[in-house]
Simulated assay, not measured.
Amino acid sequence: MFETLIEKLHDPKKSYITLETTPRHNADFAPVVDTIENLGLHEKVDGFSTTDNPLAKLKFNSIIAAFLLQQRFEKPVLATMSMRDRNKIALQSDLLGANGIDVRTVLALTGDPAKISDQPSAKGVFEGDSTMLLDIIKCFNAGIDYAGREFDIKPKPIYPFAVSNAFSKNPKTLLKKFSKKLEHGAQGIITQPVFGTQNALELLELFEEAKSLSGIKNATLILGIFPVTRLRTAQFLSSHVPGINVPKSWIDTLYEAHKKGEKEEEERGLTMSMDLFEEIKEIHPKIHLMTANRFMLAKKLLEVT
């Protein structure tokens, strides 16, 4: 299962699509899994991801959510692990537990600041950034813990992923971050959402340069796509989320459609998102689809594949 995903990831001729899921603020992840099955999305993607308390808001555990998705669909799930919430002891303990239930694709994330949490006085741990988790995974794959102690029963292979911004005013910043995460062992790096082919091509060029500089060959860039069907969403992403560049043409088009009504706005946004999805697949068929659990929207995009 995992080997097939990684083989698809690194084969330039093969399509690779993963779908992000966000566990909710409750004690049951089954409704999310049921919705995915009812819409047949599991038949249209190569795997899934589960987020880990995004924006420092309390949600169902990402590793258990990943296990439930894998158990139902027999497809690998990238379980996100945030440095914000765990020290190196907890990180390693969670990795061991995840390994025991065969959750072995891990998305290493530094995490949003605890100060924006919905939990009063929550404190971030942040013993290191996401590269520490990548280094821990390297150790586990060598049969030792982060302190160098051998395991009596060695973990099964773990496949590490990382994330990246999709835009920077200074491209060298992205190049440096790509190189750093490659050097620490990331097999795939998922970008924040892209909104144009030029943005995608620039990222791919920077990634290839980073691979050359770091001497890493077996790694792949995965382009994030977030379908936008509302003007307010496009404006929020453009104004408040660093590392994303929503083109003015998108905002202007949605603004004109918004004046004609909600239906026109949604239809225009969906058309632009579907066109982008098709264009990106032609350029680089390695895509991570993010819909904030709007799975019907994911279905509409994936039906054209």
Rank of each mutant, 00 (worst) to 15 (best):
V103P: 07
I64A: 08
E74M: 03
T110M: 06
T110N: 06
A90R: 09
D46N: 15
M83Y: 02
R86N: 15
K57R: 13
L68P: 03
F48R: 01
A56E: 03
D85W: 04
I63N: 08
G97W: 05
V106G: 11
S49F: 11
S62L: 01
D85I: 07
G97V: 05
K44A: 12
Q71V: 00
L55N: 10
I64T: 09
A56Q: 09
T51F: 06
K88T: 14
D52S: 08
P113W: 00
L109T: 11
L91W: 03
A90I: 12
N53K: 09
Q92V: 04
K75T: 09
R86P: 14
I64N: 03
A66Y: 04
K75P: 07
F60K: 02
L95F: 01
D94T: 00
T51K: 13
L96N: 03
T50S: 11
A90C: 14
N61M: 00
V103G: 10
L109V: 15
M83H: 01
K75D: 12
F48N: 02
P76G: 13
A98W: 03
A66H: 00
Q92W: 02
P54E: 13
F60W: 04
N61S: 04
V77I: 05
N61C: 04
V77K: 00
S62N: 01
T80M: 09
A56I: 06
L58E: 08
G111A: 06
L91M: 14
A108C: 15
A108K: 12
V77E: 06
Q70M: 12
D85E: 12
T51W: 08
F48M: 05
